[in-house]
Amino acid sequence: MATKVWLITGTSKGFGRVWAEAALKRGDKVVATARNIDSLASLKQAYGDAVLPVTLDVNNRVECFSAVDKAVKHFGQIDVLINNAGFGHFGYVEEISESEARQQIETNLFGSLWMIQAVLPIMRNQKYGHILQVSSIGGVMAFPSLGIYHASKWAVEGICESMNQEVAQFGIKTTLIEPAAYATEWATASASISTPIEAYNGLREAMKAASSTMTSGDPNATAEAILKVVDVTNPPLRLFLGKLPLMMIEPTYNKRLETWKEWNEISANAQ
């Protein structure tokens, strides 16, 4: 199998770090990006010239295009883009401030969009490429306290489904990665939290109790799945990670279908 060049955002920790190491261990090359390039020192030390560390804040559109330019000048191509950089914001809809809402959308949605726009001309000229967009189970269903996070992930789901229909003609593949809960810092050190409103404390405590019984996945266990998706000829548009997503999604989608069918006469009459 030919050596691939990966560009992965958010490689300082979590999924990004796991997937970068998986690619490097099998002999691929990785453009590893992070806001603090010092966090990539051990990766560079372990894999040498196979790693190109690049400082990148995905909120900065110019930096996104610059990172892609550096990748192509250094390695000559980009076979795989993984849009992994992002964070979770916790807050009931009434609690979310304007700045919190804007920051969540700026990073998770616009940061992903800028990277996609930067890499698409490269992949079009190559006539191949694979864009993997990290979404979430929260990109296909919603939970209390994550409204603005869901907004960002439902948005990237829409963009990528549309883009997939646009760029397949150029040999470019698209996959939305939809993990459930994993033992990363997503819900702890990497998260931001709105100032609470007392009226929601009862629901907040109930959600906390429910989440305490949930078993989180091992991020390292996801590496094999990502490598397989990158290597197959016809990758899926969507890929769940973990055992929970399908168990949770199936009844949710069945309920949606039931509701649409129940109200179909009213809907049809509105034609």
Rank of each mutant, 00 (worst) to 15 (best):
M1N: 02
M1F: 05
T3L: 13
T3A: 15
V5Y: 06
W6R: 09
S12W: 08
R17M: 05
A22V: 10
K29P: 09
V30F: 08
L40C: 05
S42G: 07
A46C: 05
V51C: 10
T55C: 05
L56M: 07
N60W: 05
V68I: 07
V68E: 01
K70E: 14
K73M: 11
G76V: 08
V80Q: 01
G86A: 05
F90E: 05
G91A: 08
Y92C: 02
V93T: 13
I96R: 05
I96M: 03
E100W: 03
E106V: 01
T107S: 10
T107G: 06
F110V: 07
L113I: 15
H130A: 13
I131Y: 00
Q133Y: 00
G138P: 10
F143R: 10
Y149A: 01
Y149C: 02
A155M: 04
E157N: 12
I159N: 03
S162V: 12
G171F: 13
T175H: 00
L176C: 14
I177T: 00
E178M: 09
A180R: 03
S190Q: 14
I193C: 12
E198T: 14
L203K: 14
E205K: 13
A206N: 10
A206R: 14
M207G: 12
M207R: 11
T222M: 11
A225M: 02
L239H: 00
P245W: 02
M248K: 07
R256I: 10
E258I: 03
E258D: 15
E262H: 10
E262Y: 04
S267F: 05
A270S: 11
